[in-house]
Write a protein that binds this DNA or RNA. Structure first.
Length: 233
DNA sequence: AGGTGATCATAT
DNA sequence: ATATGATCACCT
């Protein structure tokens, strides 16, 4: 009898501890996206134009994330959120990092500790991907993933931005919030297109319709996280 | 060039 | 419409 049944395929893998998760990250570090996709028998799109979430979903499958599209951390039993982070050859983030959608109504009295931003960022597995635009998708290289929890300074920066943004939102100032607001955390559109609408609070406290927004980490913040971990210059 | 605003796919 | 996963692309 051949031993097909004893082969552990990557799609069956599921980490039971954070140590197992880090081992899985070490196994895939250095592989190209094409190599990893081949292991999982997944086709690689020519580009991300119509597959913007492809890299993240590939990593979810490779590392055994199980939450799917549920509103849960990627590794519910571990309480860990997975975030891929596209970086340049110099190790600098190429994009901001989406955190979660922003609640625009019924937010009076919300506490930072209870916010989605705080919860989502409480424990993150960062997975850098060398992803220069000129590099074909299949040739982009998986970096070394690492676990991160915000230190008190980072927590304070996030909290301050979040509190300022949430106060503006609750007082009807959503229309004047732009991406430049906030030191490390910003509010930007998060929608199918510029015509999507959701409920929010107007300048006189009245209900209005506005573009759905999401919280994003500015690249300077994620760059600092990378430097903190890899001790780069 | 880099940051802000716009956009794409899929599941529920 | 909202949640998941993000990157595209225009504008300054």
């Amino acid at each position: 009898m051949f031993k097909f049944g004893t082969m552990q395929t990557a799609s069956e893998f599921k980490p039971h501890t954070s140590a197992e998760l880090l081992l899985a990250c070490q196994r895939i570090a250095g592989l190209t996206l094409g190599q990893l996709a081949a292991e999982l028998a997944l086709p690689v799109p020519d580009n991300l134009l119509k597959d913007k979430g492809w890299v993240g979903q590939l990593m979810e499958q490779a590392l055994g994330a199980s939450a799917g599209s549920q509103a849960l951390p990627d590794f519910p039993e571990l309480g860990i959120e997975l975030k891929t982070l596209p970086i340049s050859q110099q190790g600098k983030p190429l994009e901001s990092t989406y955190v979660c959608t922003a609640p625009l109504i019924g937010i009076t009295g919300q506490q930072w500790e209870d916010s989605w931003v705080c919860r989502k960022l409480s424990h993150v597995l960062w997975l850098p991907i060398l992803a220069e635009r000129k590099l074909p998708l299949k040739d982009r290289i998986i970096g070394q993933g690492f676990l991160w929890q915000p230190d008190s300074e980072q927590q304070a920066l996030l909290r301050q931005d979040w509190e300022e943004l949430m106060e503006l939102i609750s007082l009807g100032g959503i229309a004047k919030i732009r991406g430049a607001h906030g030191k490390v955390l910003q509010l930007r559109p998060k929608a199918a297109d510029s015509k999507a609408l959701t409920r929010a609070v107007g300048i006189n406290g009245e209900p209005i319709q506005t573009l759905p927004r999401g919280f994003y980490l500015k690249s300077g913040f994620t760059q600092a996280i990378l430097q903190q971990h890899f001790q780069l210059g």
